[in-house]
Amino acid sequence: MTRATEAATAGAIALVIYIAAWIGVIPLPQTFYEQILPVLPWWSLVSFGAYSLGSIGYHLMTFEDCPGAYQELMGQIQEAKIELSAKGVPIS
């Protein structure tokens, strides 16, 4: 399974559980229905945003260069220049 499929599956399961709790299929204490359940979607949205920003920040701080990818890209640029020159396109 891909990450997108796993995330969609987890989201669907969480949504089904939330709806089941909202309509009362899952028996929970009254304080949970009144105080926690209404703000649970906002709490999850804020938590996801904080996780996303933290993940992006961490990966920016630990960003590593990829010399192999650089060499591959430079080779592709040279191939493109050769092909375009063969077709008569002026390249500086």
Rank of each mutant, 00 (worst) to 15 (best):
E72Q: 11
S85I: 12
W22N: 08
W22G: 04
L15D: 07
I91Q: 09
I91C: 01
A12E: 03
G68M: 06
E34P: 00
T31C: 01
I19G: 10
L53V: 05
A80K: 06
M1T: 12
M74C: 11
I56R: 03
P90W: 13
G24Q: 03
I36D: 07
G24T: 02
Y33M: 10
L73M: 14
G49A: 11
V39M: 09
Y70F: 07
P27H: 00
I19D: 14
F48S: 13
I13Q: 15
E83H: 08
K87T: 07
A10V: 08
G49Q: 07
G54I: 12
I77V: 07
V16R: 15
Q30N: 05
P41C: 01
L15K: 10
L37F: 00
G88V: 03
A4R: 04
E6H: 13
A20G: 09
T5I: 09
E34W: 08
S85E: 08
L53I: 03
G75C: 11
E34I: 10
L53S: 07
A12N: 09
Y33C: 08
G24Y: 03
A20V: 02
A80W: 01
L53A: 11
G49F: 11
V25E: 04
T5V: 10
M1R: 03
G88H: 01
I82G: 01
G57E: 03
